[in-house]
């Protein structure tokens, strides 16, 4: 390998490393306008707990479902069950677990919407 090629490759590798460090560490892409569905697991569980608390106060199940829908496309009851799993693992207090559980029970009691185009 000629020394020119060697220098070119050495420069390329150094430049690549500097570029990656700059792009990933020093000045990474900033996400400033995120949505609730990207929340970290602990914040997500706390969000669901707040929905459950709000539901316990106002009894508005439709509003609770709308709020849970912000966390992603899964069925609301699955989102609450995930939060309960997290809450159990992290030793949330008993009243909090009960509040979450009450919301899960209410969501389970909703009859599934009829399928369109069935026989």
């Amino acid at each position: 390998m000629s020394s020119t090629t060697f220098r070119l490759i050495a420069g390329l590798i150094i430049g690549l490393i500097v570029g990656l460090i700059y792009g990933w560490v020093l000045r990474p892409v900033e996400y400033v306008d995120t949505a609730p569905d990207t929340l970290r697991e602990d914040y997500r569980a706390d969000y669901v707990l707040m929905v459950a608390e709000a539901y316990a106060g106002d009894g508005d199940l439709d509003l609770a479902q709308i709020r849970l829908a912000a966390l992603g496309p899964q069925p609301p009851v699955d989102i609450v069950v995930e939060a309960i799993d997290y809450a159990v693992k992290q030793n949330f207090s008993r009243p909090d677990l009960e509040t979450l559980n009450r919301l899960a029970i209410q969501l389970r009691s909703i009859p599934p919407s009829p399928e369109i185009g069935g026989p």
Partner: peptide
């Protein structure tokens, strides 16, 4: 090489 590597990085 540095410039090209930086751009690729």
């Amino acid at each position: 090489g540095l410039v090209i590597g930086l751009a690729i990085g």
